[in-house]
Each structure stands twice: as C-alpha cells, then as structure tokens.
C-alpha cells in the first residue's frame, strides 16, 4: 500500500467518512426505510436537547448531556468495583498456578454471559434498579481486567524476579517496585477494555430498569415514538464511548513507552 498523504488528511478523511454514512442514511430514509427519520429531521427534533444539553425540563425530559452524566456516574460506580475486585483477582490468578487451575474454568464460563442475563439476577439480589445496574456493570466489565492482569503477572521476565531475589527485597517491596510496575501496561490494557464493556452494559441496564440516563431516555423515546431521539442517543453513546477509549488509550500508550 503506497497511498499518498496530504496535509490535513487526518481531519479531511474522517470527515469524508462521516459524510458518506450520513448520505447513505439520508438515501435509506427516503427510499426503503420510510420510518427512519432523515438526518435533517433528526437534527431539528434533537436541537433542544443538544443546544441546552444540561437543562432539566422534567424527570423524563432533560438535556442529552445531563442524561449522559447520570449514565457516566452509574458506569463509574460499577467500573470502580470491577477494578477493585478484578485487579487483585488477576494478580492472584497470575501468581498462583493452583489458583488459576481452580478458577479458570468458572471464569471462562461466566465471562461470556450477557448483561441482559445478569441484570434480572441483580434485581432479585438487590430489589432496586440502581444497585442491580451497578452489579451488572461490575460483573460484566471485570473480566478483561482480571485476564489481562493475570497475563501481565505471568509475563514478568525472570530477570526482574532475579533482581528481587538477589537484592533480597521484601514481599511488599517486590510487589510495589517490581510486580506492579512490570504489570501496569497489561493492567491498563485490561482497564481500557473493561471501560468499553462497562459503557456497553449501561445502555442495556438502563433500558431494562428504566433508570434515568442516556439508555433509559432511548427506550422511553422509542415507546413515545420519537425515533429521532433514538438516533440522537445512539450517536451520543458512540461519541462518549469513543472519547472514553481515547482517553484511556493516551494513558496506556504512556505506560507502554515506559515498558520498553
């Protein structure tokens, strides 16, 4: 592949891609999918939610970023729990072969279970929708952190461990000065993937529980037949997810440099 580069290609090309998809969307809504709102209509109907993103007109009628903020808070709670449980679990899994043998099968069985399956269990356990949603987010987003941390611990070069032994470092010092920094890049890859899943889960959780947030808003507008807002929500969810991933990516890259 020997494509020519030009100045500003980093912004022009992505914009072209977006325009192409919008055109396809417009054509679709005018031809084979008449119930799909056109881009222009979507913009018009979404305007009050976009232009006053933090306004609260009523419990079910709030600016889009206000809804997003509710969702982010919920994600943050579940995600924090996922990291607090997942990181130490990954460490133990990586350090002890016996522990890994014991728990690996059950982890592999629980890992692919959909959030839609966990949520009812959460509701049974906690009776209320918010703790159920947090439970679901934590349980679903934990696994990448667990597995990547375990891989990171197993990948620590013997050389580093030899240094720890030769210098007779205490267990605590070995953990803080060697194991943790050596595993950090892997851990952070896990953190990034976990955040992606947590954000994915929030929509499903809010739809099922009806809690206020960008996913709950989406479901409510579907029921109110305001399809333009469905598209608004989809785009908002996508953009926020993209920003979150990029932010984590920046930190991750800094750690990768430190690793080399």
């Amino acid at each position: 592949m020997n494509e020519r580069k030009f100045r500003g290609d980093w912004i022009v090309l992505p914009l072209l891609g977006i325009v192409a998809v919008v055109v396809l969307w417009a054509i679709s809504s005018m031809t084979w999918a008449p119930s799909l709102p056109t881009p222009w209509k979507t913009w018009q109907v979404s305007q009050p939610y976009l232009m006053k993103p933090f306004e609260k007109r009523g419990e079910l009628d709030q600016g889009i970023l206000r809804f997003t903020w509710y969702s982010l808070i919920l994600v943050a709670k579940g995600y924090t729990i996922a990291l607090l449980i997942g990181t130490p679990l990954g460490f133990v899994l990586g350090m002890s072969k016996m522990f890994a043998k014991t728990f690996d099968p059950i982890i592999q069985i629980l890992r692919p279970v959909s959030p839609l399956a966990w949520l009812p269990l959460g509701l049974v356990l906690f009776q209320k929708s918010e703790p159920a949603a947090i439970f679901t987010i934590a349980l679903c987003s934990m696994w990448p952190t667990v597995l990547n941390t375990a891989v990171g611990v197993r990948a620590i070069p013997q050389d580093y461990l030899n240094v720890a032994r030769v210098l007779n470092l205490s267990r605590m010092k070995t953990l803080l000065k060697i194991l943790l920094p050596a595993t950090l890049p892997y851990m952070f890859t896990g953190f990034r993937l976990s955040l992606g899943i947590a954000w994915l889960v929030i929509v499903a959780a809010e739809m099922l529980t009806g809690s206020p947030g960008v996913g709950g808003f989406l479901w409510q507008e579907y029921n109110s037949l305001i399809y333009e807002h469905i598209i608004l929500c989809i785009l908002t969810i996508g953009v926020i997810g993209f920003i979150l991933d990029r932010l984590m990516g920046v930190v991750e890259r800094r750690l990768q440099v430190a690793k080399a």
Partner: peptide, 14 residues
C-alpha cells in the same frame, strides 16, 4: 553477593 548478569537486568521504569 553482588551479581552482574549477562543481560543488565535493569528495571526499565526506574
């Protein structure tokens, strides 16, 4: 015992 390894075995984050 001060050991000098073949690969220097330095910790890259320090």
């Amino acid at each position: 015992r001060g050991v000098v390894f073949q690969a220097p075995c330095l910790l890259p984050w320090m």
